[in-house]
């Protein structure tokens, strides 16, 4: 499964790298795998990330990723 991260995450945790190929059963496992590459990412993701699976924003990180092609991790945006 293709994992794409949008700034600030690549710069802050992955030495600028923004694309990975990782398979994981759900988003918790995926974020743990990313945290092993970029320590600190998991905590930041929990506070600041929004995650889309195949183009749809996903709230529940425990839901299965079976069949997913692309996971996009972007910063959460403020509203007023």
């Amino acid at each position: 499964m293709k994992v794409i991260l949008i700034e600030p995450f690549p710069g802050r945790y992955f030495g600028g790298r923004g694309e990975f190929e990782i398979d994981a059963p759900n988003l918790f496992a995926l974020v743990r795998a990313l945290d092993a590459i970029g320590p600190g990412f998991a905590e930041a993701a929990g506070e600041d990330a929004a995650i889309a699976v195949d183009g749809v924003m996903r709230a529940d990180w425990s839901a299965s990723l079976e069949g997913a092609q692309e996971v996009l991790i972007v910063p959460r945006i403020a509203g007023g």
């Binding site: 930041a44 403020a78 509203g79």
Partner: peptide, 9 residues
């Protein structure tokens, strides 16, 4: 520590 503050943190 970063915490939620409104919709940002």
């Amino acid at each position: 520590k970063i915490i939620a503050a409104g919709e940002t943190s």
